[in-house]
Design a protein around this nucleic acid. Structure first.
Lengths: 240, 240
DNA sequence: CCTACCGATCGGTAGG
DNA sequence: CCTACCGATCGGTAGG
């Protein structure tokens, strides 16, 4: 492999060495052997971009055709590579899928975290659990059907194709994502505004929203946010 | 194909000739050429059974591993056949999938129809829409997680693998299945017991229930019928 | 990242 | 329904 640039694409992370959620390694600090100002080769400069292009093409194709029905050649062609080249960036096809799904979860978590932070800043508190739930639902709907939807939809649809270690890591991310919903549902339940136990409510609410990827289309009339508000109206009862 | 028994397995139906939902042909009346008491060959006697065995094995394997990840050889081996033999019963792998999914929908419709008939007999009417919805939900939950669940779960998960004609035929069956829910939801809405428009409610309710195939497991504590009642409590408000 | 290639698997068929 | 087989495709690799 003498052709490889000095700085190998370490993100070829083997899921086998990912023991827990903490294994989402940020790009390792470059180890530079030369002294003085390092000169980058053209290949090196583009490497991150090419990898991201692969990731996005894979997300789109896996989303449209399914993981099994998409060949690594399809992905390569979509970014103008030759058939063997994706394996320079990802060790296996399964690693590519995993990278797509992890990206989907990380983005979702980041967006939700940003939302919660801004809500705290604007003093939205647990005194208005319905308002909080509305924001959570609306953000989730945007994640499902807005920019980057392909990543999260692949994540929701291709679970079976992962191995046990990969599933465990993503399960942990999912728990992180779902955690902030729990106290909100709990608060609603305590006020008599939720007609079933909060844990089950969470599962049913996510089901109602996630399933929309099978039927919701922005073109068919009705915006995504209307869908979110419909669900809110359906499950949250007026304060007694 | 001189080996074929006198009565060919006509259910090798090409989706191409299925113009509408009416195309679900009941087994064609046997055309017998010989006179007197017809003698059946062993192959002939078993043909329907072997086909059903293939169908059930396919449903199970498609459900567990996914359609693309299951080879026709897997299905053949599961019923003790050789690799080429499934193609005696089904023209293509896609036809086998379609047969599984159609079977799933037909069974679901039949079970729901039986339920509604028995409810009418016991004089459950639209005067108690909540009671009706409860029965519909409970039956749906049994269809999803009881006997024969593999068929309907394949139907819900492998939609993408069908061609347009097959999708259209199954869409029609789905409409038949969903039709009886509409007036029930409408009645609840009119009484102020449903917090959103009935059409959207139907989609969201089916989503909440269908998504349970991704998380519900009978072993994890909590029965399927408890899940159904939880959803009922979540979405139906007490009469004002 | 490209070239050239390999072994395996797969859907499907002819012929009995 | 079995036998024997074919053409195509696919994930992945060596070597530069």
């Amino acid at each position: 492999m003498s052709w490889k640039p000095t700085e190998p694409a370490t993100d070829k992370s083997n899921p086998g060495d990912a023991v827990g959620p903490s294994a989402q390694c940020p790009p390792a600090a470059p180890v530079r052997r030369g002294r003085g100002r390092p000169r980058k080769t053209a290949a090196e400069r583009d490497e991150g971009n090419r990898r991201r292009e692969l990731l996005h093409a894979a997300a789109r194709l896996f989303c449209e055709q399914g993981f099994d029905a998409t060949s690594t050649r399809d992905v390569a062609a979509a970014v103008g590579m030759q058939s063997g080249s994706p394996f320079y960036h990802f060790r296996t096809k399964g690693d590519l899928l995993f990278a797509v799904m992890r990206q989907g979860m990380q983005d979702a978590i980041e967006r939700q975290t940003r939302l919660l932070k801004s809500l705290r800043k604007s003093e939205q508190t647990m005194d208005d659990p319905r308002g909080l739930l509305r924001h959570l639902i609306q953000q989730h709907v945007r994640i499902l059907h807005g920019r980057g939807q392909a990543f999260i939809q692949v994540m929701l649809h291709e679970w079976r194709a992962l191995n046990a270690v990969q599933q465990a890591e993503l399960k942990a991310l999912q728990r992180d994502y779902e955690a902030p919903w729990e106290p909100v549902l709990q608060a609603l339940h305590q006020r008599g505004q939720l007609g079933c136990e909060p844990g089950l409510a969470r599962l049913l609410v996510f089901g109602a929203l996630n399933w929309s990827m099978h039927w919701y289309s922005p073109r068919k009339g009705g915006s995504a946010s209307e869908m979110g508000d419909a669900l809110l109206g359906l499950i949250v009862r007026p304060a007694p």
